[in-house]
Computed example of a mutant assay.
Amino acid sequence: MKNEELEYLIDDFLAQVEKATALLEEKFGKRCILRLWGTKQIAQRGSVNDEVTYELHGVGCRVYLPDACVDFDYGPDERIDGFDSWRLYIYANEVPKKHPKYTELDHVKRDLDEYIAAGKVERIKNSMSRLYFKNKTLW
């Protein structure tokens, strides 16, 4: 079972997260900037450059890129490759022409639940509700 639309959404979301964290690293010297905020070395909200801003929250970060906003959580060991139905849904609504099917939360939940049941994604210990691909390169 392979759902190309769902994988396209997840891959697109994770590519934007990667882009956002690369910009954060360029600006702050770290991909995970939560500790910088926690130790008051940076503000909760601010600019990365003239076109990009960020907003930290809980264990995550929202980055406003020129074309879309991407909201992600830092996972165990500062992982950034986690996702969940809510974050995918929010992202799909940022770029609805790319992911029209997933502008409905029920569609995201249904397709993601099928991937969970099929064992293609898993919850990682200490990662709250975030999901990760088990080993995408093998299928």
Score class of each variant (00 low, 15 high):
residue 97 K to R: 07
residue 85 S to D: 15
residue 8 Y to F: 12
residue 90 I to V: 14
residue 56 L to F: 12
residue 25 E to W: 02
residue 138 L to M: 11
residue 40 K to T: 12
residue 127 S to M: 05
residue 29 G to Y: 05
residue 3 N to P: 01
residue 42 I to L: 11
residue 107 H to L: 12
residue 95 V to S: 01
residue 119 G to I: 13
residue 53 T to H: 04
residue 134 K to F: 00
residue 23 L to G: 02
residue 133 F to Q: 04
residue 27 K to W: 01
residue 41 Q to S: 11
residue 64 Y to C: 11
residue 11 D to I: 14
residue 44 Q to P: 03
residue 22 A to T: 13
residue 73 D to M: 09
residue 106 D to Q: 12
residue 101 K to E: 12
residue 138 L to T: 13
residue 45 R to V: 05
residue 8 Y to W: 02
residue 9 L to C: 13
residue 46 G to W: 00
residue 86 W to H: 08
residue 86 W to T: 10
residue 55 E to G: 05
residue 93 N to W: 03
residue 102 Y to S: 05
residue 108 V to G: 02
residue 49 N to L: 01
residue 127 S to Y: 01
residue 104 E to W: 00
residue 2 K to H: 11
residue 59 V to Q: 14
residue 125 K to C: 02
residue 53 T to F: 00
residue 102 Y to K: 07
residue 11 D to E: 15
residue 129 S to V: 08
residue 68 A to N: 15
residue 78 E to W: 09
residue 124 I to K: 14
residue 23 L to I: 06
residue 22 A to L: 14
residue 57 H to M: 08
residue 45 R to A: 09
residue 115 Y to A: 12
residue 92 A to Y: 01
residue 98 K to L: 12
residue 80 I to V: 07
residue 128 M to N: 09
residue 75 G to R: 10
residue 110 R to T: 09
residue 47 S to G: 07
residue 101 K to R: 15
residue 125 K to P: 00
residue 70 V to H: 11
residue 137 T to V: 14
residue 83 F to N: 13
residue 125 K to L: 12
residue 116 I to C: 08
residue 17 V to Y: 09
residue 61 C to A: 13
residue 62 R to P: 00
residue 92 A to T: 05
residue 127 S to R: 06
residue 116 I to K: 15
residue 85 S to T: 15
residue 20 A to R: 09
residue 20 A to K: 06
residue 102 Y to C: 07
residue 39 T to K: 04
residue 114 E to D: 15
residue 119 G to F: 06
residue 107 H to T: 12
residue 96 P to M: 13
residue 131 L to Q: 09
residue 105 L to R: 04
residue 62 R to K: 13
residue 19 K to D: 01
residue 45 R to W: 03
residue 17 V to M: 12
residue 84 D to K: 09
residue 7 E to G: 06
residue 74 Y to D: 07
residue 127 S to D: 14
residue 62 R to C: 08
residue 107 H to V: 13
residue 80 I to G: 01
residue 8 Y to Q: 13
residue 24 L to T: 03
residue 84 D to W: 04
residue 44 Q to K: 15
residue 78 E to Q: 15
residue 12 D to R: 07
residue 97 K to T: 10
residue 127 S to V: 01
